[in-house]
Design a protein around this nucleic acid. Structure first.
Lengths: 200, 200
DNA sequence: ACAAAAATAGAACAAATGTTTGACTTTTAC
DNA sequence: GTAAAAGTCAAACATTTGTTCTATTTTTGT
């Protein structure tokens, strides 16, 4: 590696760290002081190269206007809801216990604002690999396809089950021989389980 | 709400958006032009208030030195490794297929740089709720406690199993009656499974 | 409605920051 | 090894940018 390429790398690293720590990018002089370059002009030349190479973007004559064109990992940000009370909207302020972030690629291509997480209670879905205490990532929707895992409200309580619908009724199937399917008209789907997360 | 409090809110929002879009914070004049304030001095007074209230931090006389004291959700960032080849270090460049981010709170209190993820192959751990295709988040370590779920190298292949050690041998137990435990001396633990993620 | 307090405006100022220039030194490529 | 290219340095410059000051207007609390 050329000596100057190493310096280019050093400068880029310094900009990244500085920006992360401060919340704003460094000045040319701050860079020069930290990468062992006594000339501000040298810094400018390196920054010009970094811009040409596509690592940063600058806006001429503006101070601290180094924009790192970083390849951030895309994420989704969603609330964890605690008890789901009937009547209330699920995402009401008082239901939200926490907020989490995960890579978008870990779930499907869903709208960020329609996602929420719910702690699974009980072992009724254990044969589907969903254990008591697992966190279910749920996409809010009023209907799901047959065979998909749904979150549904049954007698004012949220439950996670396989969803099946025939022409005359809806049934929720557990994945555990110890439990019986739930059937009835008074079942409303509130979402589809799109991912499961378990802390071990 | 007081009129000036609304303006304070507007300014904070503008700073957040500007910073997100540009990668660096706005100048006083840019703020003044965008929140309908013709005086730069007014902007300064608002920023002073915002700093007193703890919403931002400034460094006197520095340009664009508005640091948003945002309450970011803490995350960990780790690689997804593909095939695990024997001999090579697991985290070698060529093994890394992707990088993911998840909230720190979803795993234990582990060192960011020792985490990696591995796609689970087979159904040998299905009774532990770990299915074929699940993503195991693994903490690199050379030993685990009895009963914990480990990633171990067996005949040059990585496998996920319950770990048990007696005084004379190590055994790896599947969670599936169809499989038999693996025993032997030629077993090396490379990590402990700390979380499971499944995309449905 | 009124007085006090707060907010706004405009201008001038000083510090900082990016740019340019030219000479010198080191590195690179043959 | 040598010449060309690239990198470094220092200084001067122009622009941007935060700060300060004073007067005026608007808002607030009673």
């Amino acid at each position: 590696m050329k000596k100057s390429e190493q310096k280019m790398q050093d400068i880029l690293t310094f900009i990244e760290e500085y920006t992360k720590n401060s919340g704003y990018p460094p000045t040319y002089r701050e860079i020069s002081a930290n990468v062992n370059l006594k000339s501000i002009n040298s810094v400018k030349k390196y920054l010009d190269r970094l811009e040409l190479s596509g690592y940063i973007k600058k806006s001429g004559f503006k101070s601290r206007s180094i924009d790192l064109v970083k390849q951030e990992i895309p994420t989704v940000n969603f609330p964890v809801v605690g008890r789901v009370a009937a009547g209330q909207p699920i995402l009401a302020e008082q239901n939200i216990e926490d907020r989490l972030v995960i890579s978008s690629s870990l779930i499907g291509n869903y709208d960020d604002s329609l996602l929420f997480a719910l702690k699974v209670r009980g072992d009724s879905m254990i044969d589907a690999g969903i254990n008591d205490g697992d966190l279910a990532i749920v996409h809010s929707q009023n209907t799901v396809e047959n065979g998909e895992i749904a979150v549904a409200m049954v007698e004012d309580k949220a439950t996670v089950k396989y969803f099946y619908k025939t022409k005359d009724k809806i049934s929720l199937h557990p994945a555990n021989a110890l439990y019986k399917p739930i059937e009835g008209k008074n079942i409303s789907v509130i979402g589809k389980v799109v991912a499961i997360i378990r802390k071990i």
